[in-house]
Design a protein around this nucleic acid. Sequence first.
DNA 1: TTGTAAGCGTTATCAC
DNA 2: GTGATAACGCTTACAA
Lengths: 341, 341
Amino acid sequence: MGRTGEAKPTINDVARLSGVSKKTVSRVINRSPLLNDATREKVEAVIAQLGYVPNPQARALALRRNFVLGMIYDNPNAQMVLNFQEGVLDAIRDSEYALVIHPVDRHSPTLFDNIRRFIEQQRLSGVMILPPLSENDAFAALFDELGCNYVRMGSAELADPAHLVQSNDREGVREAVECLIAEGHRRIGLVEGPEGFRSAYERHQGWREALEAQGLPCDASLIARGSYTFETGKEAGAALLDRDDPPTAIFASNDVMAAGVVHVARERGLDVPRDLSVIGFDDTAIAATIWPPLTTVRWPIRTMARSAARKLIHPEAANREQSRFPTEFVPRASTSRPAQG
Amino acid sequence: MGRTGEAKPTINDVARLSGVSKKTVSRVINRSPLLNDATREKVEAVIAQLGYVPNPQARALALRRNFVLGMIYDNPNAQMVLNFQEGVLDAIRDSEYALVIHPVDRHSPTLFDNIRRFIEQQRLSGVMILPPLSENDAFAALFDELGCNYVRMGSAELADPAHLVQSNDREGVREAVECLIAEGHRRIGLVEGPEGFRSAYERHQGWREALEAQGLPCDASLIARGSYTFETGKEAGAALLDRDDPPTAIFASNDVMAAGVVHVARERGLDVPRDLSVIGFDDTAIAATIWPPLTTVRWPIRTMARSAARKLIHPEAANREQSRFPTEFVPRASTSRPAQG
DNA sequence: TTGTAAGCGTTATCAC
DNA sequence: GTGATAACGCTTACAA
């Protein structure tokens, strides 16, 4: 059964050997309810004996529908992308769906054509798009135009629930910064993410809301911008620490930049958390890996991915599938009361 | 062209509008050489006007061949998996191929059936399998049985060149450990990878060969085992540092475990590299991210992935495609001469 | 409950 | 060079 070179058995082989029509075999495959139990068992026996597996290309052709989900992303954060992939795989495990991935360069001048070609060629059932690409409404319009179902992943409301999985980054950050304030910090810096990222904006707002609620300063001298990379985290951290009145705590908009801040603090002879408290965002592997272990806000990527995939697989129930996912504060060892408390 | 709800144009539409048969259109699509230039141009004009894209499912059905590459892995290292994915995408960009991914749990009792189902269902052109799964000959046998082309990725010779991309981990590690010896280290520890991983074995051997060539000790008291994770790196590092005569340098079989060693050294009040030199393997993002920046050995994953994909896309030229890929020593700041020279 | 005929969109065969 | 015709493996009418 199934040795090299042997042609794979088809529905016709099954039909012939079990003495029924191919339509009946088709009914067995598709679990049609109106089927004699005896017939079903007979056909199933032959299927097992032959090791028959329906050809998904033929199915796709007949059904005018391809059981393939696509994933489009351009993200510097490997762990986040992989977590998302695994969430999708959780959802399609033991189903006939497959996941095809499509990393792109968001700065490429041919990005739109590239994505259009991808969708048109593969005739996907649906596509999931990750931030920051997901924040661009033009892509949603493109998917609509191509008649391709989609789910956007975002850090805030981006679309109606059927086409969205969303985390509450703003609240998560607000809560984290409130913890710093509760510990006694008064000058709390922000290393914000790159311009044009909704996640960067939301996390900035979370920081701002926490400070403003307590009447604490949140002026420009407490803000430095990075681009979600380690190097820019270092640069932004350095800019904040070199100010005349440096912050006693810094919230960085992702873990990698927080690691950069920790790094540059150490270069300046500062001890984290004694001389500087640091909080990140994501709770990717790096958070537990660096020294000291990083206090952060967990982003429930895998869960979001699972729901995104399920929205595409069951479009009729997409609205009932969860769309909003709370973040979670993860206290570790990179924060403490300020030294001159 | 292509608005929602509109049926996609088919080869029949193109044939009708250009006044030729569908076979002629098919010839245009497939760049058949025996075609009148005038006819070709006429058909191409209609194709462009209609925005016609051939249906890959129908193609796959007619050709009995699916233009899809698969990737099977179970690896704790996110960056390595993602690098591999991007290498594959480099190779299939602007082609009709797509990449479907299939993460698995190598400890699952149903692993074999799972992979078999994946291959049989998707009817892949070929599949790439990553370590440690790639080191299991039984999978190669399974792919042969299923008539599915494959390429194994490994840290040593695993198969003939047509089915293999391979790095020279042993030499890379030997070179790195030789650098430690040249700096004056005499007791050099090894945090080795998990049992059953070929990469772990090869890196172990590289360490051993470097030491033995200089007549230095490489007994069991200098070896601790981890499982390529941060936590086990910490445990193994602690085991080595708690010995009566601890090593002045440690080679860890991957970057994540090296980060664990650095972590635990710091917990014991040791300065890296002053009191302990550390070298990792991989050169993933974490190497440049931790403090101090980690000296390591770069593993050319992306390049290997590119070649792996090309071997599957052009099986007839698979032997001419590169199969062996050298690692590269990447000196950073986690090594120095030993304190008590 | 089961079977027949037609069709999904493409390519291969073999005439012309 | 080009075009009928029959596959490819499956599903959806519609009948029986």
